[in-house]
Write a protein that binds this DNA or RNA. Structure first.
Length: 285
DNA sequence: AGAACTGCCTGACTGC
DNA sequence: TGCAGTCAGGCAGTTC
């Protein structure tokens, strides 16, 4: 599953392989892979044909490609999306949704997505920062991310700390997996009320978030083949060294207690019952 | 406005 | 073996 480290690796790959190339044509194989574009797939393709990609940028888990027209292509990988750079003529992937060809005849850019939770869209005038994703907060690896601003925003909220970590308007790039890992390192249960956490506690948690993302980014960077701008999400997932996520019933690496799994937002949270005791008072709401 | 909930998708897996 | 049900996940949209 592509999260911040994977998306950043994809961005680096796109920067290397598609920057300064001129799009010849765009083929949309699956209309659902085009988002927020009422004019339809044909119009989407027409707007992009002949445009040159100037860069590859990222905000949280979103990517965007500024074009020489001043517009931008926005991309989100969702759960299962991949952006692949493949030599022209390579056999189509089963879940190939969108194909970009370039007038230099070089490798194609392909959006491949099994579940089509992800997709591409065009942002008019969005080369600098598409308005569609302006609500997404900076990620904690961003030099302009404000630690103090994040701490203050979290303490103003009346919710649970894990929900706050997953709120992309507070901090971006953190998903279910990294939220659980950071909370485990901080020895905090995800149901802890945000407004009862001290500033130093939130600062410590933020440091763990940064560590987890940074370590995963290092690992993600090493496992990528140079020709591919993304890999199979599953292989990346299983390669990670996770301490609690997916380890239900296995011993906690801090204390040996058995990792528990709890229902959370129609999915799962993993934590150590001893290191991360549930708060005594439930969060408001 | 903030918080919570739902729908979007399909392949892998589980249990009967 | 086959089938139905469950799970995985981020985010846009909606509701309160």
């Amino acid at each position: 599953m592509p999260e911040l480290p994977e998306v950043e690796t994809v961005r680096e790959g796109l920067s290397r392989w598609v920057t300064n190339r001129r799009v010849e044509a765009v083929e949309v194989r699956h209309p659902r892979a085009i988002r927020r574009h009422l004019a339809g797939a044909e119009h989407f393709a027409a707007v992009l044909a002949g445009r040159t990609i100037l860069a590859a940028c990222r905000r949280g888990k979103y990517l965007w490609l500024p074009l020489d027209s001043g517009d931008a292509v926005i991309g989100h990988l969702g759960m299962s999306g991949q952006l692949l750079v493949r030599p022209a003529g390579t056999a189509d992937e089963i879940h190939l949704r969108i194909r970009f060809t370039f007038d230099d005849g070089g490798p194609e850019l392909r959006f491949v997505d099994q579940r089509t939770f992800g997709g591409l869209s065009v942002s008019e005038g969005g080369a600098t920062l598409p308005s569609e994703i302006a609500h997404i907060a900076r990620d904690p690896m961003d030099p302009e991310f404000s630690d103090a601003g994040f701490v203050a925003a979290v303490r103003r909220r009346r919710t649970e700390i894990k929900r706050a970590l997953l709120d992309q308007t507070l901090i971006s790039g953190v998903g279910n997996i990294y939220a659980d890992e950071a909370l485990w390192r901080a020895r905090l249960h995800g149901a802890r009320p945000t407004d009862a956490l001290t500033g130093p506690a939130i600062t410590r948690l933020l440091g763990h978030v940064r560590d987890v993302l940074g370590e995963a980014l290092k690992q993600g960077g090493t496992s990528f083949d140079a020709l591919y701008v993304n890999v199979n999400g599953e292989s990346g997932y299983f390669d990670r060294e996770l301490n609690v996520y997916g380890r239900e019933g296995l011993p906690c690496r801090h204390c040996g207690a058995l990792v528990r799994r709890e229902a959370f937002m129609n999915r799962s949270s993993f934590s150590c019952p001893r290191c991360q005791p549930r708060p005594r008072t439930p969060a408001p709401g």
